[in-house]
């Protein structure tokens, strides 16, 4: 296919080749091929780093599901001006810079920020709560960035459910609750799984938001890589860490693809 030649060549040179170089470098040292870089990664400091990254990503995924499912249901199936505008707003938030949105969270969460001031003014607390530069701030900021991804993945699935199936189930004597669990949930499960994997993978790899809102106290794998490159100047170690993260992401991508195909993100959700 001639039409595919140019973009494919560009992708191979600009993406696949760097990834292969990364792979190669992760096994290299001054004295030839080695596994030392990966052994370095087994140190407790990296284990706790990895554990923290996974824990926080899992928490964010669960929160995204908890909020994203009812939100997507509302937008997809209860039609009205409200759901229409909420959907538009969600999509619009994707067009805004991550950095500025993170800055907004700083303004909201800091010691004398909007939320603390509101709570003190309402008399709920006396002392400002530590909301920023800790895990709470990271979770809030990441949730804000990833919730739209969850919702736009769920929307096409929720929209695609044929109303006549729901009506058929109700006519056949199933209660709305039973219909929801026996018809709606099974039919939308692939979309839910797909959205969860997408959010989880993106959460593992995110760097900007945890770096700023964590204030250096909550370190993730991505932040460790940056330190390895810019501070420790240990490129082979950074490569080994990157390859580990790469393997996790690619595995997730393959599982994701098996469940539904990444197309879901931009599928029928657009008009």
């Amino acid at each position: 296919m001639v039409i595919l030649a140019v973009p494919l060549a560009a992708l191979l040179v600009l993406f696949v080749l760097p990834m292969l170089e990364l792979f190669w470098l992760s096994f290299s040292s001054k004295s030839g091929l080695t596994l030392a870089n990966y052994l370095e990664l087994s140190r407790p400091v990296y284990a706790s780093l990895t554990l923290y990254t996974f824990k926080i990503s899992l928490l964010i995924t669960l929160l995204c599901l908890l909020i994203g499912c009812p939100l997507a249901y509302f937008i997809a199936r209860i039609k009205g001006p409200l759901s229409h505008w909420i959907a538009l707003f969600l999509v619009m938030s994707l067009w805004l810079s991550i950095l500025t949105r993170t800055y907004g969270w700083v303004a909201l969460l800091q010691r004398n920020g909007v939320i603390n001031n509101l709570l003190i003014w309402a008399g709920i607390i006396d002392e400002p709560l530590p909301l920023l530069y800790n895990s709470f701030g990271v979770v809030m900021g990441m949730l804000h960035l990833l919730l739209p991804f969850m919702v736009i993945t769920l929307l096409p699935t929720f929209r695609a459910i044929d109303d006549s199936l729901i009506r058929a189930s109700l006519c056949l004597g199933a209660s709305p609750l039973r219909t929801f669990f026996k018809v709606f949930v099974p039919l939308t499960l692939p979309g839910v799984v797909a959205g969860s994997i997408l959010v989880f993978v993106l959460a593992i790899g995110y760097f900007v938001t945890p770096a700023i809102l964590g204030g250096g106290h909550s370190s993730t794998i991505a932040m460790a890589i940056k330190t390895q490159v810019l501070t420790l100047v240990d490129l082979p170690l950074a490569a080994a860490t990157s390859v580990t993260l790469l393997v996790i992401s690619v595995a997730a991508l393959l599982i994701y693809e098996k469940f539904s195909g990444v197309d879901r993100v931009f599928g029928g959700g657009k008009r």
């Binding site: 790899g205 995110y206 760097f207 991505a222 993260l245 790469l246 992401s249 990444v262």
Partner: peptide
Amino acid sequence: MIVPLMVI
């Protein structure tokens, strides 16, 4: 899109 930005 899926591979973490830091890795790329």
